[in-house]
Structures are given as C-alpha cells and as structure tokens.
Design a protein around this nucleic acid. Structure first.
Lengths: 149, 149
DNA sequence: AGCAGTATTGCATTTCAATTTCATTATACT
DNA sequence: AGTATAATGAAATTGAAATGCAATACTGCT
C-alpha cells in the first residue's frame, strides 16, 4: 500500500510537484475523501461548500479538480448526465474501473475488478492497438428497480 | 436483412411514426449514409452543408439527429472531444459496438463484434444488474502511431 | 520575523455546444 | 386545391466549462 493516497502524504505530494497545498485545495480533497462512494461534480462540491457556509469560488473548485486529475489523485468520469464527475483514483487499480448505471433510478454501482484484461490482449492481437486505458459503462436495471415491476 | 435501414423504406418509417419526411431530414440521413465510417457531429454535418451551399439551419440538423436517435436510426456517441457524435445504427448489432481511440492521432476504430456478452452474464450473477446496453472505449496507441516512435 | 517573488484565489466575464422561441413555410391527408 | 398540423430557421437563450485579471496568500530567502 505504499502508493495509497491519504491526507498525510498529500501535502508532500503537492510540494514535490511545486504546487501549494492551500486550504481550498485541502477542502476539495477532503470532500472527495469524505464521499468516496459518490461521484461528485464540480457543482456538487460548490453546493456542498455553500451549504456549509464555506466560501470557495467555483473556478477554484474547477481548477483544483483539474489539478488533482493531473496529479493522478482523481479521475474524471462521464456518467452521461451532462456533468464531469470525479472519483478518487485508487492506485491498486491499473485502469479505470467500470460503472453500472441504472436507467430507472440513476444509481451508480462501481465495479472495481478489471474485467477487460483478456479483451485488451485480444485487441492487441487483432488490431495492433496498444490499450492504455478504457472506459466501460453498462446501462440497465439495478437489483432494486427490478423488484419494483 | 429485413431490418436493414435504407433510403427506400425510410420514408415509410417516418410516415408510420407520424413524422414528415422533409427534404432537410432526407439530406441529413443522406450525409450519414454517405459517410458510414466517420462519426459526424451536428457541427460536422452543418459544415458539410455549408460547403455544398445547401442551406439547412443548425437547429434543424440538431433536431433531426435527435429524432433519428428516437427512431433508432442512429445512435449518439461520446468520443470525449466535446461533441455529440452520431453513427448509423446497425440492426444486426444487438448492442453498441466498441471504439478504439488513438491518443496520438485521434483516429477512431470501430469494433463491430460484441465482446461483452460473457461479462454481462457475469454482472447479472454478481450484481443482479440486468444490462440493457453498454459503452466501451479503449484509449491507446494505434498501429500507425506505434511505428512512428 | 519581514520581505520579495510567485502561485492561487475568486469575481466577473467569456466561450461554445446545445436548446428553445416563434413567426414563417412546407407537408400530408381529405 | 384547401386545411390542419408539423417542421423550419434565424435569433436568442441556456448552462457547464474556461478564462482574465486584480487582489491575496503562500513559500523560500535573508
């Protein structure tokens, strides 16, 4: 777990890359850590701060998320709702994990296990295309919604 | 091939659904049929008309694409370039096909074969999630770009 | 500790794809 | 052909994302 990101070594990481670990950046990171299951958008985070009467400009939140992505602390994902969403990058995972998106209730289920390794080998064989990352989403009906019919 | 969409039965399809088969809609469909390999955006199509001195409003193109999607003639896809792109829906394919996206040159390769059937069965077993459709993109280096190093 | 240089912040503004409005025009059915 | 209805397109609007810039805060240096 040497690679694990946490609040303890984040400051160092910022400094090593020449960035300042400001209060605002810290707070954005904190929100992400406090809600590891959610897939927060920039707007969500702004709204969260507003409700807690914390004053951080929306452009700061935007720029922080972009910075965090560059630092490989978060990954941006598109869950087809018109917002760029972010999730903490787990360094145990080599690639992006997958998402199940329920068409009925909109709930998102993360699949942490990489299910595509074999496919990527096959794609290299068939297309000589060297896969570096992937994005896999499944749309359908979740367990809860299935019962409601 | 009873299901195959073509210019011959398109008019009927519009009429059966209560839509008018206008010249503009016809031309949008024609552009899509003429470029089955490309993944045209609304803007691409508008640009194409402009270059041919064909006058069709951008909102008409937008609305036509949305209508064609509703009619299951096209599918909208997101290739992460900020544009909604469209491709003809092949009714031989049960699900969306996959895309290889080269990070170097931006070229897009379609994979028509459904590689996810087994995974979807497994997802139903593990998560009780009934997959209806999917979206799979691979990012990496295409055959051409690999040689250039 | 105080200073200087630089990075960051946040308000306001801009960008741009996408969508909507509404008066005009075209289509399909009788 | 006439009529009801749908479609068109120019222009305006929306909303997420990005940017400019003056004010502010942070860090390293003395």
């Amino acid at each position: 777990m040497a690679n694990k990101i946490n609040a303890i070594n984040l400051k160092d990481r910022f400094h090593k890359l020449g960035y300042k670990y400001t209060e605002q950046r810290q707070m954005v990171v904190d929100v992400l850590f406090e809600h590891p299951v959610l897939h927060l958008s920039s707007e969500d985070i702004c709204e969260y701060f507003k409700q807690k009467n914390i004053n951080i400009g929306q452009s700061t939140v935007y720029r922080t998320l972009i910075l965090l992505e560059k630092m490989q602390i978060v990954r941006s994902i598109n869950l087809d709702d018109g917002f760029t969403r972010y999730e903490l990058l787990n360094h145990d995972e080599e690639h992006a994990h997958h998402h199940l998106i329920c068409s009925k209730c909109g709930s998102i289920i993360d699949i942490k296990k990489d299910l595509l390794k074999d496919l990527e080998k096959q794609i290299f064989k068939d297309y000589h295309f060297k896969v570096q990352d992937h994005c896999l989403k499944f749309y359908g009906e979740c367990d809860n919604c299935k019962d409601k019919n």
